[in-house]
Simulated scan of single mutants.
Amino acid sequence: MVEKIKDILYMDRYILERESRARDRNQRGIAVIAAAVFVVMSLLNIKQHSSVMLATTSLSAVFLVIGYFLSKYKGNSKFLRGMFYLIFMAVFTLYTVMGGNEGFAALWLLVATYAVMISIDFRVGFIISAYHFVMLMLVFIGPLNGLLQYAYNETFMLRFPFLFVANFAFATYIAIRIRSYQYALLLKQEELEYFNTIDLSTGLLNRNRFIKDVEAFQAGDLNTLSAVFIDVNGLHGINNRHGHSAGDSMLREIANLCKDYFPDNDIYRMGGDEFLILCKNESEEAVTTAARLLYEAVEQAGYSISYGVETQDADFDLDKVVRDADEKMIAFKKEYYRCRRDEAERVSRN
């Protein structure tokens, strides 16, 4: 049972951390509905000359509207949540004790249980509902009966706390089921996002992820930004001579070597035989040395790469540093193939 409760609380926290904006939208939606209901109740209270009830319903509507605008336009949802908690605890307790509108106001407790637990905050809603249950037992059946300002009939006082318990149980069950579905959906979405940003052949980040990182790039506390652009030499020839499985094996081995020599950096397979490594807050010398060691390790493995390294230490521009590294890689590759042609010509002459 304890483990089950821990699982429920973990799911709830997991959802809230990732769906804070959706929660704020839900709360604003509930605020609009609740404010409209309170306005209608205020009109009814005016008709029935119920001054205390009118004061609570009209003020609740006003503060919910204020909370709505603070949340929507100022990004401050704390005030709105605070108003919900104040209404559901203090105002609805007052309704119950006073027996407003001939005892009808106590029925708001049934609505509050669902509204708070499902749409606002499961954990806080559970605590508020537990408080309401204890309050009902103490005031309707227990030793605090003298606090009541309204003469509820005996049947209502005996049965309403247990009706509330049944309502509380249903609301808890529904809220937990909703959280379970939300949790499963989030996991599935994150799984899809993972596969959408990972190159399945090498396990590296892919071009989709690079595009997202470019869009989200901020210099922040960067001191240096380096890019290592890599292109594999001879992939087409290996595929032709030994088949695509050999080419795929070579790419995986080179990808693993990239991870070995750049273990703390973002490594992307940009497509085909191109790789990109982004290094943040590392010296140009350290990045250049690591790239050279990677080049030598690839040569020792029986393969070949061309690479270019570019470093920025001010005016950080992710697109530009990658383009400059790419241009250096292209120059390296041209030199590589020129040397091979020269070597082939010497062999043919001899």
Rank of each mutant, 00 (worst) to 15 (best):
V134A: 01
Y152W: 09
T197A: 15
E154A: 04
I211Q: 14
R159C: 11
K212W: 12
T56M: 09
D315W: 07
Y95E: 04
V39K: 00
K4D: 00
R209F: 08
R338S: 14
M270D: 04
V165Q: 03
E296V: 10
G125E: 03
K280L: 03
I211D: 15
N153A: 13
G272H: 08
F217R: 13
S60F: 00
A325N: 02
F84H: 02
R252E: 05
M83I: 08
K188T: 02
Y131V: 13
L222Q: 08
N239R: 11
L187T: 07
L192C: 09
L138W: 03
K188F: 07
M11L: 07
M89R: 03
I178V: 15
G272C: 08
N240H: 11
D315T: 09
G67V: 04
Y14I: 04
I238Q: 08
D199Q: 02
M329W: 00
A106R: 03
V39M: 01
S20A: 13
G302I: 13
L94R: 03
N240K: 08
Y150L: 03
Y150Q: 01
G237F: 10
M98R: 07
D319F: 09
F104Q: 12
F84N: 04
R323I: 13
E17S: 09
S348I: 15
C339T: 12
E3H: 08
Y181F: 14
S249W: 08
G272T: 03
L136C: 00
E19Q: 13
D260K: 11
L136H: 01
S129E: 02
E335Y: 07
L59D: 06
S245Y: 06
F140P: 09
L163S: 11
A105R: 02
S283T: 15
N145R: 11
S58A: 05
D326I: 01
R25C: 14
Y68T: 05
Y261I: 04
F63Y: 15
L107A: 12
T202P: 05
E3M: 11
N240A: 10
Q300A: 14
Y261W: 06
